[in-house]
Design a protein around this nucleic acid. Sequence first.
DNA 1: CCAATAGTCAACAGTGGTGTATACTACTGA
DNA 2: TCAGTAGTATACACCACTGTTGACTATTGG
Lengths: 220, 220
Amino acid sequence: MSTNTKRARRNNTDPESTRQEILQAALEVLAKDGPENLSVTEVARRAGVNRGTAYQHFPTREDLAHATANWVSQRMYEEFYGDAKELWEKNEPYPPDLAQERLSNFAMNNPELSQAWLFDVMTTGGEVTDPFWKEYVHRLQEFVDEGHGRKDVDVEVFAFITLVSSLLWPLWVGAHAKGDKSRKKMQQRFFDEMMRLVLFGSLVPERHAELVERFGGKRT
Amino acid sequence: MSTNTKRARRNNTDPESTRQEILQAALEVLAKDGPENLSVTEVARRAGVNRGTAYQHFPTREDLAHATANWVSQRMYEEFYGDAKELWEKNEPYPPDLAQERLSNFAMNNPELSQAWLFDVMTTGGEVTDPFWKEYVHRLQEFVDEGHGRKDVDVEVFAFITLVSSLLWPLWVGAHAKGDKSRKKMQQRFFDEMMRLVLFGSLVPERHAELVERFGGKRT
DNA sequence: CCAATAGTCAACAGTGGTGTATACTACTGA
DNA sequence: TCAGTAGTATACACCACTGTTGACTATTGG
């Protein structure tokens, strides 16, 4: 064993780092079991932290659950929009391929975060005020208003479709995963198809004249 | 109390109906808590059935979980494709608006079923062999092959996008729901936007010539 | 060196789920 | 009428998680 003490001593001097480790573990448990089934015991185990320590940071199970949900929402926002501030300030539009690539990569690299966020925003009341969702819709609306997107797009619904499927795709692929290169290939396929879809749609218009008439005549 | 017996007698003669009630309750619990957290006690309570009865039908918790998952997949298939056999036999294509409307309605009317199915197919190994998923992809592939859809569609990815977002939309809306008519309106919005998307895409091609070049040059 | 801090460890009562077993009740068909 | 079936009621041993407490240990700043 490494030291004489039975457990490796933790960075004693930095309670914040311990807190982060607990939250990170809680996030993983959250993604695995859902918000209703978050267990302090399991979180502590996974964080490599004594259960008592977890209770020092978060007095009750509920406190931990709420803290984790907030943390998830915040990280979701920061990790996604953190380094995109410059673009906005220059008032340049976020190119759609970059946006989608960024979203795809993010989802692929943070499957638990994606799942936990979806879990939370789906089940626990929804929180239309979730900052990440609001920002996502807002940016998309601006993009459309500036003439890059079709004027007849229902931005909220469209945002939902792209966001949800992008976030869930890695989980779907992960569940059916064979190898690691296979997953990369799947990510590429998703990106290509999503770009293709938003550019051209999926139906052959000539074969569906009635539908074109019915759904194309609204605005623009 | 209504009778002298403390509990209302159940339809004694029909164990199958009891089994169905247990499975239905299990489905609801499954949708609420996820497959890993299905509790026999909770299911029995919800089904209005004695816990012992549940154990007579399903010897262990795992048996109940598996039986429910199978039942979900089967119901998913039947309720969705049950009365569409005639169309196929006449070799007529399923009109895309009807397909989407059917999918939307189904998801709206069976939110637990949708959620449980997604839960199951996402987490527990995935089961690419899920009959409903296979059929969904298969029909879509035929539709494209017959020239109704663009030849460059990645059918599996496209199927994923439409299916997942259609199934999750009612949950999203339900979480953020105000009234009942509001939910109907939201269903209409989703349907319209999805049809619009598959018909026309969401970007203005002239504004994205480079992307059109990049993603439009594959096939057809 | 000393006190405060951050964390470990062990124990405990309480709750709630699992799986099993046994005695009981009502309904059914032969 | 009587045996079999379907379900009820209850009790039990077992286990896991919750939340609390108290004693302990390593590290750090003054």
